[in-house]
Amino acid sequence: MSEEQIKNLEAQFEARIARDEKIEAKDWMPEKYRQTHIRQMSQHAHSEIVGMLPEGNWITRAPSLRRKVALLAKVQDEAGHGLYLYSACETLGISRDELYDQLHSGKAKYSSIFNYPTVTWADMGAIGWLVDGAAIINQVPLCNTSYGPYARAMVRVCKEESFHQRQGYEIMIKLANGTPEQKEMAQDALNRWWWPSLMMLGPTDAESIHTEQSMKWKLKRKSNDELRQQFIDQTVPQADLIGLTIPDPDLKWNEEKGSYDFGEINWDEFWQVVKGHGPCNKERMNARVGAWERGEWVRDAAMAYAEKQQQKKEKQVV
């Protein structure tokens, strides 16, 4: 194809997206569109499956049977969401195994928040409330993104995710209304998860490299800073309601702009974790790589068995 033809196709492509048409897997698309989508969707999928680990850490220790089944179902959903997103990614011609390789080799990123340890039961509450809360803010607009398979996966994810945040907040309510010890546990979890949750919505707009292109392709509808503000404005009253204190002395309602002012985020910490030096980066990777490697003989066996069965069937036909 000549350069001019490609330019022409690109213009048509951008026009389709501008008209709110969906792009499907076999449609022509600019290489950059494909690569950007593989990157974002796989990063999203990786976040789901690495995100299973900090919560999985408490499945065996959940304090009641009711909490245990809710947590199991939630972590299981995360596996499901990872699966939907890997599948959507695979429509762009990359296999799940290649995507795993990228994760396991450290080439691909996942949400840094999962590199923090879950040290008390209240962390299950804080993660559901704050981390899922922030994730939902990020994800709901993606149900309308331009790439069809991604948008459809997100519709399913968002639908299922609606119980996750409630599950977390309910844990916090119970703790906040419980004994002094329980309330302290809840406050401690909020203290530890608040700032990482704000960081989770991404670097400030000034430092975010992909935003403009992503907006055009509807991979993003609002900037990181706008999303962060939305998250803070919706979360602060929820903390007030259950008598917990947001660990930010600078947090203050700004009547004029109709939203909260908040304190400085420690971006050095953010970049340190992104670059692999968070408290649990190594543990998370070891867990993922370990599970994959320990599972290899199992996956091989299933393939070998399937082939044998197939051969048997063919013989019977002859």
Binding site: L72, Q76, A291
Partner: peptide
């Protein structure tokens, strides 16, 4: 339940969690 997140594939993970 303690296997969740550590199984040989995502699909088997989901299945084992269902059993649990």
């Amino acid at each position: 339940g303690s296997l969740t997140g550590h199984g040989p594939s995502l699909e088997t993970d989901i299945a084992c969690t269902n059993i649990s």
